[in-house]
Write a protein that binds this DNA or RNA. Structure first.
Lengths: 204, 204, 204, 204
DNA sequence: TATGAATGAGTTTTCATTCAT
DNA sequence: CATGAATGAAAACTCATTCAT
């Protein structure tokens, strides 16, 4: 019955999403969660642990959205699915997404335990890239580089749409996606239209 | 004679770069700047204003690095220059770069004044993309989208290298750059090798 | 069946002995005693009562050690026995002794109920002194004064040895004891060697 | 101008004297001293440092009272003076005396830095005992032992009087003092009456 | 009777801000 | 203009005590 713990988690995530990590007090969390301040300390040693646990949790949630159905179908189908998963998740104003963005650029993020956890959580992406390279389809680049040129655009697009800096345009996104796909392909593999259109993705 | 103001600016930037926005006290800034705590209030209404001003300043510094020589030469040459400017700046562990990353994902970033300022600062990029589209060379996409698919990768690559998550590899970066160039081009415009190699950029 | 109560007592004594009265939480006591925190309140109204009861208990334990065999033999033999009982008990690092020292100098010690209890507990000492005075052997001084000049030294010596500020030296202690004996005697009653040496006390 | 620091010191001493170390909050100290809570932290790193500094200070005050005029006159005169200094100081209900008693039996008191400081502060007593032994007048015992048998009684008597457990009786004290003097003397050196009576001590 | 989760008042400590010098 | 001592509100955290189970 991790009811209270979950309550505290959700409350913290919500506050971080709206006010950032700066304006985050234990009292606020307690109020939002509807528990006493002292109660938080039954579930988390201190604020640092709470933030740390939340970070891991958020990362898991992000990964589960991003990697949804990422194992089925052809390489191309899997790529497209992940690409749009990223955009769709990034567009959302969910606490998970908003608080995620608070974490990733924090100092200390490059420390070993964080990196290890992050790599493990997103290991399926590595699998995808490795398979593409083994099949001789993708460029022989480091996975981080492949991510940077093909999926980082999706991250940016989702964020821009959410922030209202870019208007949502299905056709534009599909073009962007196919360009990203081509960019990591050795040969000029045009994306099959059917893969783009026959998805069951929920457009806006 | 904005000597003191500059001192305070640099001190703040330095602390943010190393410890983040969390652990940032006015006393620390005063110590680092070599002034009295009260003095800061002669130059800035309060902490928020100081942070806000610094944010703008950092943005200007970033822009000046990113846009260096971005107006000279062919479209292709200008793109390559900006692309590598971004990577090279992102690789650095300078206070400007490190504190920049602290700012960009802060809540409140999508407020109007910030957006307006940001757009103005990076207007040259818009010029570049508009020219490309007008010349019928670039895809007819919104500028933010063009940025996302062609330059956001450079941002990510620079950051990854700085964090030690990606090893610096000149050849790999040049391939990545040419792929980013192709991705925004309507026709399959291969990058001219001379443009990549004859640059006066200082590789690592 | 005061099993739980005894458990709580011992646990409290142990913690006080090692960490003092400062760092003493009900949770700690509960953990050490192996009971739930709430259980303590079945046996003691509140923390104050627990501490108070413990104080009395410790006093009883101290008295039982100090007054061991204090009723048998000549005045001289009884004095020597008490004197060494005090030193020997004071030297020990037992919870009873260590927690005793935490109590004696607490404010509120001079309140009536405490005094009455203390006097009752150590009444045998009063008997000893009264008998000495009645027999015309001891100086006609108040009992507290007799204690101060003849037994307080034993208290101090035991404490010093325990704290490592004085090295244990049997001969030195025996000399000190005989000097303390002489000091309360009207006539120059040298202690009989046999009384010092034929004891069954276990020296270090 | 250590005005504030002194204010905080006195306030803390006063509270410790009346309520002990237990009931000692920074807020209380601030109130008593008439400063803001935060001000305390300009003068002391944290509560521990404040307590520690106070302890040293109290020890110095105690020493200055105890050792008053302890260097002048014959061995006997010096002993008598110290003996009565101890009783007279111990009888007082001054914050210095009362808070002193709170400190001496705290756990951690036997740590090296504390011991070193204490020995240095009371070094004059060691000188007194050493001189007595060198002159062949005092028993060849460790200084701590000499203190225990001759001066510890004075400590106890002062405390007892203050607590109302012993009524003040000049004649009784003078007898006690002379007995203490004899107890550390090898030969049966009766105290010279003139030394006892011609003192300028202020009896109650 | 026993439990231990929950409480919330109280504790220590920090820090943006003010203001007399 | 510049200082830095002082402030006091607010933060993180503790803990004696209660109460539903």
């Amino acid at each position: 019955m991790d009811n209270k713990r979950e309550l505290i988690f959700k409350a913290t995530e919500k506050i971080i999403a709206s006010k950032g990590l700066q304006g985050l007090s234990m009292q606020q969390i307690a109020n939002e969660a509807g528990v006493a301040a002292g109660t938080i300390y039954r579930y988390f040693k201190d604020k640092d642990e709470l933030i740390g646990e939340l970070r891991k949790n958020v990362l898991r949630v992000v990964a589960s959205h991003i990697l949804k159905d990422s194992g089925e179908g052809t390489l191309e189908q899997r790529f497209i699915r992940v690409w749009f998963n990223i955009v769709d998740f990034g567009r959302q104003r969910t606490p998970a997404n908003l608080s995620y963005e608070q974490y990733i650029h924090l100092p200390g993020i490059d420390s070993d335990p964080h990196q290890t956890f992050e790599n493990a959580t997103f290991s399926e992406l590595h699998v995808l890239f490795e398979e593409g390279k083994d099949a001789g389809v993708f460029h022989s680049l480091q996975n981080k580089t492949l991510f940077a040129i093909s999926l980082e655009p999706a991250v940016a697009l989702g964020r821009n749409i959410r922030r209202g800096q870019l208007k949502y345009d299905k056709a534009e996104l599909e073009l962007a996606c196919s360009l990203c796909w081509q960019t990591i392909n050795k040969q000029d593999n045009q994306i099959k239209l059917s893969n783009l259109t026959n998805k069951e993705r929920s457009g806006q």
